[in-house]
Structure formats: structure tokens, C-alpha cells
Write a protein that binds this DNA or RNA. Sequence first.
DNA 1: TGCCACTTAATCATCAGACAATTGCATTGA
DNA 2: TCAATGCAATTGTCTGATGATTAAGTGGCA
Lengths: 253, 253
Amino acid sequence: MAKTSGSDTQSRRRSGNPARIHGTIAHDLGVAIVSGQYLPGEILPNEIDFSERLKVSRSAYREAVRILSAKGLVESRPKTGTRVTDERNWNLLDPDVLAWYFAGEPDPKLAHGLFELRLIVEPAAAALAAERRKPSHLTIMREALMEMERCGLDNEDGRNADRAFHDAVLEATGNMPLMSLASTIGAGVRLTTVYKARKDELPRDPMPDHWKVFDAIAAGGPEEARAAMTELVSAALRDTARALERGEKTATV
Amino acid sequence: MAKTSGSDTQSRRRSGNPARIHGTIAHDLGVAIVSGQYLPGEILPNEIDFSERLKVSRSAYREAVRILSAKGLVESRPKTGTRVTDERNWNLLDPDVLAWYFAGEPDPKLAHGLFELRLIVEPAAAALAAERRKPSHLTIMREALMEMERCGLDNEDGRNADRAFHDAVLEATGNMPLMSLASTIGAGVRLTTVYKARKDELPRDPMPDHWKVFDAIAAGGPEEARAAMTELVSAALRDTARALERGEKTATV
DNA sequence: TGCCACTTAATCATCAGACAATTGCATTGA
DNA sequence: TCAATGCAATTGTCTGATGATTAAGTGGCA
């Protein structure tokens, strides 16, 4: 277990808040668990020993465990101790858990799973958005795309704009469960831009696809929006596929 | 804030575990928040006062707040206090949060959102399952359906079997993010059987639709499975629609 | 042998109280 | 008007003790 950097809500609150001990412990332990450093079924050292080894108070450590428990990663019982739960119980849709997954080397299998989810959800969401979007949604989408054009996808601002666009589409559906998928979809979107950052490949311009989706949503054409989004995600998957197979990755995570 | 009953992982751990104080506080506070008793932006009483009022120690109360914070419901800062976050930040895909939502009167808008999600995800999942299911998955599905037939849907066992079937379909996709949606989809499934329990309406037999899905998955026909699942969910939505509009509900939650 | 009630010890759960760190806000001064 | 400063409220962290739960062992008994 090591550093503590990360963009999850635990180790670093939403806007530059200082790291709290329970948060950093939860982050570090969470990363250790999802990366397989502690296997499901394994039992963590007891609170006293572990908190001592981590050089923190028992209460701070316990709060960290509560966080992990709330996300389904561990389960505590008297006498038995705190054990890592079966992977099936992990709440993968939790933004922090997902962030912890991608803190290290992205798992190609999970990455593929995320793309599959995008391919299922985003076209349908685009169709719904085309029917329900309000002017404010269109404004957000337009500005996000313009920001993408201005920045490009080889930097953080551009990637955030990309994610903002996809978020806005989900938001425009007015469907709360779909909106909650934003962080998951966003992780998938980010994967594209990270994997694709291989310089030796021609960086296909993603903007035309994006604008097609936007135009369809703006025009109120559900099926056109669905088709355009399908094309967009498919293209992203194609661009990423080879890198995924090889498990390759570039610097900026 | 009142009782503390519930089937979430906080107030009652997986298998008859006794309720822990931090869990019951998290449950009660969580229900109070999602039911609008505390509005987003509102600030909770400070730890000392509130824990005193709740008759629990400050540490137990703090652990409860950590749980809520991990699920995105609240945010704590020194000096400011602990405030309820914007609803957009709530992790609706978290099994506990969803359970808390439906602890009281189900919100028709949310219920509709869940059906929409089912209509998007489940047909696609059925198609994937048809391609990838293993014999073990088919066994689980078959047994779940037989259990459904044996019990009917007007009791807890039958409803659990129903959910087990839908879970198994997601499981068979081998897609981790989709599997994590099981609890969310399950909540949607449960809604059907709860809303539909109006005795004066003819209880359409749901089994043929279910068997059609099963047969298609077993036969390895993706498109047949997709179509059958679409039909199943659509029918469930139709059956539920009127009750949803009227916001009616029956006893057993 | 096989089974049940009881004991035991390990671990988490809860409590109480103190002190530290953060931070929004008022106050002050230029 | 605005920036620097100090204050006070609140959460954050620490310490140490006691209670509750429970898996596993123990012994009696049929």
C-alpha cells in the first residue's frame, strides 16, 4: 500500500479539499482490494494491529472500513474480523470503486465490459434525450463540444469536456437511474481517450461523430440520435480495441 | 425518524446479523434524506448535539455519517458541518440507497425510470446471455422459474425467485458492470410484483413470457432472447402502468 | 459415536472525553 | 474597496476502556 493520490471523492473531496485520514486509508485499502492485493475471503489484520501498522488511530481506521463496507468491498463481524467480500458484492457502479479499479493498470476485461455497457446504454439514452431535451441541455452539450474542439483530446480539459457531453446526454433523459450511470459511462469515455493516446496511430477526428449526435438530439430525432450514438461508440471501441487486446496504455491516467 | 426495519445491507446484514448502531442510524438518516425529510443543501445538527439526541455515542454517529458520505448523500466539512448533497450526487445505483428510496411510498417517477432502465438493459443482457451462458447459468435460471411457478408471485419466495431469474440473466452476460446492475434491476422487478398485487385486476400469468426468454437463451438465440425479454418487460410495464399513474400501492413492501 | 449445552477467547462495537485541524466569517487596517 | 488577520464553530483525530457478538473448543450425556 502506498501513495494516496487519486481523483475519487474519498482521497480528495470535490474541490481541492485536504485529504482526510479515513479517506486516504479507504482509498489505499480500496485500491489494494480491487487490485487483488487482498483476495476475496481474505481477512484483514485486526483493527488494533492494522491501525497501529498504518500509524493511525483505531477510530480513523474504523471509519475507513465503514466506507469500504458501504461500497460492498468488505464485511466485518465480531470474532471473525473484517473480510474481503466476494467480488460479486462489490459495487462497481460506485464512482470511487471504479476510480480505484483504474488507479493502476486498467483491466482489459473490465474495460471491454464498460464499452459493452456504453453500447447498450448510450444509444438508448441519446434517443430518449432527443425526445426530452430542454434548451439548457442543448446549451451544455454545445458548449462541451466546442470546448472539445478547442482543447483536443490529448489533455485533461478536452477529456473533461468529452465526458461533460456524454453526461449531458444522460442528464437530458430526465431518467434518474440513467443519470446515476454518468460516472460509470464517464469512466468508459475516459478509457477511450486514454487508450487512444497512442501517438503512432492516426488520431481519427472524433468531432464529426459527436456533432452528428448533437444535431440529432437538437433536431428531436430519436432514431437518428440512436444511430449516431451507436456509430460514435462503435468507432471509439474500434479505436480502442487493439490497444485493449494488447493491454497497452500510455502515460497520462 | 423512526423504526429501523429494512432489508438493506446496513440495518440488517446479509444473513440475519444483528443490527449495528451505526447501521441503523445510517439507515434511518438515509431514509429521512431520500424521502425529503432533509432537503439537499440543508445542514444536519452538529455531531455532538445530534448524537446526543439520538442517544448514541459520537463515534457511532460519525460512522453512520461516513456510510452516508460514501454513498454520496452527505458531505462533511469542518466549521460548515454536514450537509445533504445535491440529489445528483446520490448514488442511486447503490443497493442500500435504492432500498431506502422504496422504504416508504415508491416514487412513481423513479419507478418509471427503473422500468425504462430495464427496457434498455435487460433485452440487451438477454441477447448477450444467449451467446455466453454456461450450463450453470441455465440451471440457475431453470430452477428460479420452477420456483416461481411453485410459489406464485403473491409471496416473498416467489418474488425472490423472479429476481433470481433476472439476476441470472445479467450474471450470464459475464459483464461485470452489467452484473452490478443486478440490484437496481432487481428493484425494478420487485416493483412490478408489488404494484401488480392489486387483487381486482386479472393477474396475467407471467410464466409464459419468462419461459420464452429462458428457451431463447438456452437455445443460444440472441435476437430471439432480446425480443422475448423486450416483450416480458413491456408486459410488466403495461401491467404496472395504471397503478403507477395513480400512485397506488398495496400492503406488502 | 454423535449431539447438545456451555464456556471461552478473539474481534468488532460502542462509549467517553480530550485535543488538533480546518475553515467560514467578522473584524480590522490600509 | 479590498486584503490580511483573528476568532469561533465544527469536524477530524486520538486514546483507552468496556460491552456485545460469535466461532470454536469442551465436556457431559444419551
